[in-house]
Design a protein around this nucleic acid. Structure first.
Lengths: 210, 210
DNA sequence: CGTTGTATGTCGCAT
DNA sequence: ATGCGACGTACAACG
């Protein structure tokens, strides 16, 4: 196998698993590296099949050349349309829940905007505290140092705006890395660990009230 | 299928491809999303096989429950040890090319050192400009905000050294995200978009001259 | 279509 | 183990 594209790669002859999907993708698996193939081509791409040689090319001109020396097994199956995967607990959902109940972050918080736009990207939640002060909230599932850096950038920018300043910072996450917490607190960013399940419970309770 | 781990996910019944590798990994594929499975478990993990039900658990307690209703096809193959994949990357090569032709970044630049060591990691290129001033260059294939942060950290550190200061910053990449450019220019970091193919051409021309 | 942020990212390397 | 940077990152959402 040879790949010529964003990088070049060569793979000597060996027994391998080739997977060709209905979406047009091709992947070459060895008996390791979990679900990641040794090489692949993502759709949309075109497969040119000559005897013993496959040439897979995509729009950008990237190319996969596969030479087949022996076929140990070959089978094909109709899988039909997949009913789809339901995920729960990703950051987007956490943001929804906190947007609905900003008081969880601190008593008296009210939401001004979700995805508050700035020149360097949107702030997850923009709130006001009980005293009318501005609060920028960064939400992560797991907060690392990068999350603190991100929020710091937003705060620096927002605090240049005399209409908004002073803007306080809150880092809300299901878990916060110790180093991230240290860095955050050093920068006067408040850390809030949120319990996703409990938050979902609050949401349910509030819905029940109406 | 159900996954309970870093998030929870559920997958209704359908025809799917299950791949179990010798490394112990399990992945569940549909006929789309290229090489990425709908769900998976990475090694090390343990598969408990009951009739019609697989339970895959890893060290962190994440769990995959797979219910088999019907097996359309089942086959197993020894792939043996894989001879391994040889990759030739672009990023390292880009650094080589710029090290050989620092004048591409700005007329008069000369290379002092590649991988210039600092306490927080090596600076990709350390140069002098035509006036003898210090220049730290961060090279990326695609520069995002994180690249600007990285270079900023280097510059802050380097500028504390009175023998080097002032040190100018240059971000060189094949493509630079708009937000990264905004942040960089706000911090007086110069952005240079380099053309990999053209650079390779320059290299060839210079080699031809000698 | 380009841009941006997220990811069960994964992977590899240094500490 | 953990932190950090690179990845052919992939991928989806959004302007």
């Amino acid at each position: 196998m040879d790949y010529i594209g964003r990088l070049t790669a060569h793979l000597p002859t060996a027994n391998r698993l080739l997977m060709v999907k209905a979406d047009g993708s091709v992947s070459i698996h060895a008996d390791d590296r979990a679900y990641k193939p040794l090489n692949w081509m993502s759709p949309p791409c075109r497969i040119e099949e000559a005897p013993g040689v496959w040439r897979v090319v995509n729009k950008a001109g990237e190319e996969l050349r596969i030479t087949l020396e022996e076929v140990l097994h070959d089978s094909s199956h109709e899988l039909g349309v997949d009913p789809g995967l339901r995920k729960d607990g990703v950051e987007a959902h956490l943001q929804e829940l906190l947007a609905a109940s900003p008081g969880v972050l601190r008593e008296g918080y009210t939401l001004v905007r979700r995805e508050f736009p700035t020149a360097i990207g949107p702030v997850d939640l923009f709130c006001r505290d009980a005293g009318g002060g501005s609060v920028a909230v960064e939400i992560k599932r797991r907060a690392g140092i990068d999350a603190v850096e991100q929020l710091t950038r937003y705060l620096e920018l927002l605090n240049r705006d005399p209409l908004l300043a002073p803007v306080a910072g809150v880092l809300a996450a299901q878990s916060i890395a110790p180093q991230a917490r240290t860095l955050a607190e050093d920068r006067d960013i408040r850390c809030v660990v949120v319990d996703y399940d409990a938050l979902r419970g609050i949401e349910r309770d509030e819905l029940t009230l109406f």
